[in-house]
């Protein structure tokens, strides 16, 4: 008799529940959707237990299933709320550039050593808040590109957009995120300074 390829499913929730939930939360930014996908992941895993080879860790196997569920979720969202003009329109604040396309007031100096920021829990919190503040289409595209690390071809298929539109969406998303961080983090710390 061989060693069972995966552990008792009744222990899955305690072992992997928090891990899968965090994984889903950072990508979906929606608690109830994240809970649902964790549940769906376990149920799908239960059905396909036979196919788990034990070649990868159980956690990796479960995350692989969750990744597909997340992509499906984005696909559904894209169908329900297709790209709007607003997603492709001009900047959050058109006054950033003058009529000739030059900065009216450029990005502020973020100072210090930005590499230290990754270790600051509060900065990461602010980053997630700013990401949640984007429109769903912007946030989903950014998440797939920068958090999942998907290539643009895959993202176009999931979100059902052309590559040209995707570049515009990602440009808008990055610009909004940058502005949000500048307003809520960097300018805030400057005010606090001596």
């Amino acid at each position: 008799m061989g060693i069972p390829a995966c552990s008792d499913p009744s222990e899955w929730v305690d072992r992997y529940g928090n891990y899968l939930f965090r994984y889903a939360m950072i990508r979906l930014r929606d608690r109830s959707a994240a809970e649902d996908l964790v549940q769906e992941t376990f149920l799908a895993a239960l059905k396909s237990r036979g196919s788990f080879s034990g070649g990868s860790s159980e956690a990796t196997w479960l995350v692989g299933i969750l990744k597909h569920k997340i992509a499906d979720h984005f696909r559904r969202q894209a169908l329900e709320a297709p790209l709007e003009d607003a997603d492709l329109r001009e900047l959050p604040d058109p006054s950033v550039f003058d009529v000739s396309g030059h900065w009216t007031s450029g990005p502020t100096d973020w100072g210090g050593n930005p590499a230290d920021l990754y270790r600051e829990e509060k900065f990461l919190e602010q980053f997630k808040n700013c990401l949640s503040g984007l429109s769903p289409n912007h946030a989903n595209a950014f998440t797939l590109r920068e958090i999942e690390g998907a290539d643009t071809g895959e993202i176009c298929k999931v979100l059902n957009v052309t590559e040209t539109n995707l570049w515009v969406i990602l440009h808008r998303a990055r610009m909004h995120l940058r502005r949000c961080l500048e307003t809520h983090w960097f300018n805030r710390s400057m005010e606090k300074g001596p």
């Binding site: 964790v38 549940q39 920021l117 990461l124 920068e146 690390g149 961080l181």
Partner: peptide, 30 residues
């Protein structure tokens, strides 16, 4: 580039199983 790097760090930090920090699945959901 800092924004890109931050997104990657967030993904890397949250994607490790068994990390005690961060959000947990609510008890009633469990």
């Amino acid at each position: 580039l800092l924004i890109r790097e931050t997104a990657r760090r967030i993904a890397a930090a949250e994607d490790r199983p068994g990390e005690p920090s961060g959000e947990t699945l609510p008890e009633e959901a469990k």
